[in-house]
């Protein structure tokens, strides 16, 4: 199988680490060769963060280049737009509609762009936008945004529900498992 590319993007501190861990585990369990790559260091200081997940029969490069991503999973609207060049034509963007103002917007030197889902569609992406933060709160914790997004993404990946549940069990501490299962289902079915 040709290598498939998934980018997970967001803002430092949003919890993309668990998402990439879950995805890595899921794909490893499926018997794929997997590479997961991220840059640490600035991740807690509110900067843009990007994680690359690649899988297939044999994966070489640990990074995803422009025009290569099959999917972008974004924790934040602006970050999806920022990385759109990395998406293949007709690639899929699963995006949390949450907006987090970056410093240039906070200080009034720039404005937060409007209608980003429509603009991304116009640029050639298929956009699935959802309010993952509200769904996470409904599941029991705003921190479950990552699993809500994974649930929604499961609709596109073509891997069985049982396999997702197994990976979830392996990656999430038992006491948070119920909450995360609920978050996953809300993301998938809402």
């Amino acid at each position: 199988m040709e290598t498939k590319n998934i980018m997970i993007v967001g803002v430092g501190g949003q919890g993309s680490l668990l998402a990439s861990k879950l995805l890595g585990r899921l794909l490893l369990n499926q018997g794929y060769d997997v590479k997961v790559s991220e840059v640490h260091g600035m991740s807690q200081r509110g900067g843009s963060v990007v994680t690359y997940v690649r899988y297939g029969d044999k994966v070489y490069s640990p990074i995803i280049d422009k025009g290569e991503a099959d999917f972008i999973i974004s924790f934040e609207m602006l970050e999806a737009a920022r990385n759109l060049e990395y998406l293949k034509k007709d690639g899929i963007v699963v995006v949390n509609t949450q907006q987090i103002d970056p410093m240039p917007v906070i200080t009034g030197n720039a404005s937060y762009p409007e209608n980003l889902p429509q603009k991304m569609e116009a640029a050639g992406a298929k956009v699935d936008a959802l309010d993952a933060l509200s769904l996470a709160c409904e599941a029991g914790s705003p921190k479950a945004v990552n699993i809500v997004l994974m649930g929604r993404f499961a609709n596109y990946l073509g891997i069985s529900d049982e396999a997702w549940q197994e990976a979830l069990t392996q990656c999430v501490p038992t006491k948070f498992l119920e909450l995360n299962r609920k978050a996953f289902d809300l993301g998938k079915n809402s």
Binding site: V11, G12, M42, R45, G46, G47, S48, K66, G67, E68, A69, L78, E79, A81, R82, L84, E85, Y86, L87, K88, K89, G91, P102, M103, P104, V105, A110, S111, Y112, P113, L116, K119, M120, A123, G124, A125
Partner: peptide, 14 residues
């Protein structure tokens, strides 16, 4: 890949 959005995307520095 997809085209870069025409509108400028504000930076998000740490």
């Amino acid at each position: 890949g997809c085209e870069k959005l025409e509108q400028e995307i504000p930076n998000r520095p740490p």
